[in-house]
Write a protein that binds this DNA or RNA. Structure first.
Lengths: 137, 137
DNA sequence: TCTTGACTTGTACTGAGTCCATCGTAGGAT
DNA sequence: ATCCTACGATGGACTCAGTACAAGTCAAGA
């Protein structure tokens, strides 16, 4: 993750302890935390960090493309640090668990021209839903 | 849409004027209203209808499978009455416009077994993003 | 037409996120 | 090493979407 901090510094980011802690919390793959969860974990290391700062930092990481927002349940958004490895999500309808998946094929190519209505289509987001082994009946 | 009302009556629904109005508002294809928009349009016909009733009715329509919820922007959920014709969505990143689309191919089949992690996968939701003709640069 | 339980209402409440005036500090300038 | 200052952090108030619930209303079967 220190390479993330390097990249950020390279983009003119002022490296504060708060930003460092938020970046550290988001380290690792297959992490899908809500803003409040990020705040809780950050506060474990830096008790005075405020919610507003966590929101600001997450927003900045998103607009820099280092982190992507996923909202799979219509409740709190989740923040996915796996931003440089495009992937989709498999969500358990029972417990809400999220797994990163990498389907074969390119869904962008599956949208024929006559279904594009003149749009310049640049992104696809695929969410698979089902029951995980623990929640299966 | 009267067939919808028939179907609902058949399922033991008590047919109140409020429910009728909500169902009427959701009539038609390519309609993607937020709960508040549904409420506003319903109130135009039935001024005393309450927000709570609109939420209740929408929730019931969703659990009956007559309407699907889509949350494309992390803000208010939208309600899509086109529930019996499976389709995906194309969203303009500029103005938020939503179009229903029908990609070729079956994205469910694109998720290989070794990417399913033991899940019983039953649904896919695909969101295409881009710029609509009006918002294109 | 009566009855009754399903439905509706309004208000209060929660949860997620944003705004903003003020304070603090990272890091370049000296 | 110290100073400056613009960028960033803070926290509390606020908004927006949605939920909970007690009390009142009414659709539809007897």
């Amino acid at each position: 993750m220190s390479d993330l901090l390097e990249r950020l510094r390279g983009r003119g980011w002022r490296l504060t302890s708060q930003r460092r802690v938020v970046a550290e919390v988001l380290d690792g793959d297959h992490v899908h935390l809500t803003a409040d969860e990020v705040h809780a974990r950050a506060a474990a290391r830096l008790p005075e960090i405020s919610r507003a700062t966590v929101y600001n930092t997450l927003g900045e990481l998103v607009s820099l493309g280092e982190v992507t927002e996923v909202s799979t349940d219509g409740r709190a958004k989740r923040y996915d640090p796996n931003g440089h490895h495009p992937h989709h999500h498999l969500v358990c309808s029972g417990c809400g668990t999220i797994r990163d998946v990498r389907p074969s094929g390119n869904p962008l190519a599956d949208l024929p021209d006559d279904e594009r209505f003149g749009f310049t289509v640049s992104e696809v987001e695929v969410t698979y839903r089902g029951l995980c082994p623990n929640c299966a009946p």
